[in-house]
Simulated scan of single mutants.
Amino acid sequence: MNTPKRIAVISAGLGKPSSTRMLADRLALESADVLRERGVEVETSTHELRDIASDITNNMLTGFPSEKLEAVIADVTGADGLIVVSPVFSASYSGLFKSFFDVLDPASLAGMPVLIGATAGTARHSLVLDHALRPLFSYLRAIVLPTGVFAATDDWGEAGAGGQSALTDRIARAAGELAPLVEASERSSAPRDPFGFDSVLSPVGGFQPN
Rank of each mutant, 00 (worst) to 15 (best):
M1E: 14
T3N: 14
T3L: 15
P4A: 12
I7T: 01
A8G: 04
A8M: 06
S11V: 03
A12K: 05
G13N: 05
L14Y: 13
S18L: 01
S18R: 02
S19A: 12
T20M: 05
R21S: 08
L23V: 07
D25F: 04
R26M: 12
L29I: 11
S31Q: 01
S31F: 04
A32Q: 03
V34M: 06
G39H: 12
E41M: 12
T46A: 06
E48R: 09
E48H: 06
D51W: 06
D51T: 10
D51V: 07
D51F: 04
A53W: 06
D55P: 05
I56P: 00
I56V: 15
T57M: 15
N58I: 09
N59T: 15
M60E: 14
L61W: 11
T62S: 15
T62H: 07
T62I: 12
T62Y: 07
F64A: 07
F64V: 08
L69T: 06
E70C: 11
E70T: 11
V72C: 02
I73V: 15
I73N: 00
G78H: 08
A79E: 01
A79C: 10
G81N: 01
L82S: 04
L82I: 04
I83M: 03
I83S: 02
V84T: 08
V84Y: 01
V84F: 02
P87R: 02
V88G: 06
V88K: 06
A91K: 13
A91L: 15
G95Y: 10
G95T: 13
F97G: 04
K98V: 11
S99R: 10
F100P: 03
V103P: 00
L104H: 06
L104F: 08
A107L: 14
A107Q: 08
A107Y: 07
S108E: 08
L109A: 04
A110S: 12
A110W: 07
G111T: 05
M112W: 00
P113C: 03
V114F: 00
I116F: 03
G117L: 02
G117A: 05
T119L: 06
T119N: 08
A120Q: 07
A120M: 08
G121M: 09
G121H: 10
A123E: 14
R124Y: 13
H125S: 12
H125D: 10
S126R: 13
V128M: 08
D130V: 09
D130F: 08
L133D: 03
L133Y: 03
L133S: 02
R134Y: 07
L136R: 06
F137C: 01
S138E: 09
Y139R: 07
Y139K: 07
R141M: 08
L145M: 03
L145A: 00
P146F: 01
T147R: 02
A151W: 00
A152E: 10
G157K: 12
E158I: 07
A159P: 05
G160V: 10
G160W: 12
L167Q: 04
T168C: 09
R173C: 03
A174K: 00
G176P: 03
E177L: 01
E177N: 00
E177M: 02
E177C: 00
L178N: 02
A184D: 11
S185P: 09
S188V: 10
A190Y: 11
P191I: 10
D193E: 12
P194N: 12
P194Y: 13
F195G: 09
G196S: 13
G196N: 14
F197T: 14
D198M: 14
S199E: 12
V200N: 11
L201A: 14
V204M: 13
G205F: 03
G206W: 02
G206I: 07
F207K: 11
